[in-house]
Design a protein around this nucleic acid. Structure first.
Lengths: 142, 142
DNA sequence: GTCACCATTACGCAGCGTGAATGTTC
DNA sequence: GGAACATTCACGCTGCGTAATGGTGA
């Protein structure tokens, strides 16, 4: 079968093996399997998930803790999706769901804010760039 | 006059006084003045600058080191803008300028990448949100 | 002179990793 | 037997928190 080992993951993600194990220790990632000899075995799907974690970390500047939070949220939703409920549970679930929805909404809003600020920061950079270009053409030496 | 003291800055920025002094130690910020008794005195302009630093840090997820880099870049450009050069310096400056331009261009590209990824992450969140909304209306309990 | 605020110095810790040592698997 | 795997312990950097100790100033 097409199992990937830790080195494959390391090579493709740019993380060190040590870091991969560290993330696993934190609960952020997990190989789908272990060999009989206890060696981590990953699927392509695992790889994708790990890459998305990295993106989220680098791009969004999320801390490992925040990523953990997010993962839990996601799992929670999936559970809701596949769980069949009796009447007495329904009420509780509705409460949970609205909390989740609210948390998600907050995240989205936060992202929108970030993107706005990012865009204005980018504008500032571009302004600087223009200044430099101007200097290059027209050296300041009266 | 309208000098601000460290506590004013702390209150309005949400940073602690410790953090403000730490940032100063790093070279990230600096009060415009000190009183005779060596007390930090800030202007409104200082305040704005500090707030922008915070945005850059929080929003862009830049480390303090990266922020320092950026500040140096900016100062360097300003110097170029106000410095008058003799012929022999020109050549050197041109080299520096093109390095700066390149660095800036990289930053801009990096920001664009981040914004792209951010946007796709936001889409993922919105997708989750929709799932949750669906669950709220139509509880999963056949 | 008092009281709230300021300063510096310095120790320490949590988060995020990076080796190094030592042993196991294939 | 050698390369790649495992675990564990311990160190290092960043970004502050937290005194301790003393000066400033309305």
């Amino acid at each position: 079968l097409g199992w990937l080992k830790i080195e494959d993951i390391a090579r493709e993600t740019g993380l060190t093996k040590r870091t991969i194990r560290y993330y696993e220790e934190m609960g952020l990632i997990k190989p789908s399997e272990r060999s009989e000899g206890n060696i981590r075995l990953y699927t392509d799907e695992d790889m994708l998930q790990i890459k998305r974690m990295i993106d989220a970390r680098e791009v969004l500047g999320f801390s490992l803790q925040e990523l953990l939070q997010f993962l839990k949220l996601k799992e929670s939703i999936e559970q809701h999706n596949t769980t069949f409920l009796n009447q007495s549970d329904q009420h509780l679930r509705q409460l949970e769901l609205s909390e989740i929805a609210q948390a998600l909404q907050e995240q989205v809003t936060m992202l929108e804010n970030k993107m706005k600020k990012m865009s204005s920061f980018k504008a500032e950079l571009e302004d600087l760039l223009e200044q430099v270009n101007h200097l290059q053409k027209d050296p300041h030496n009266d």
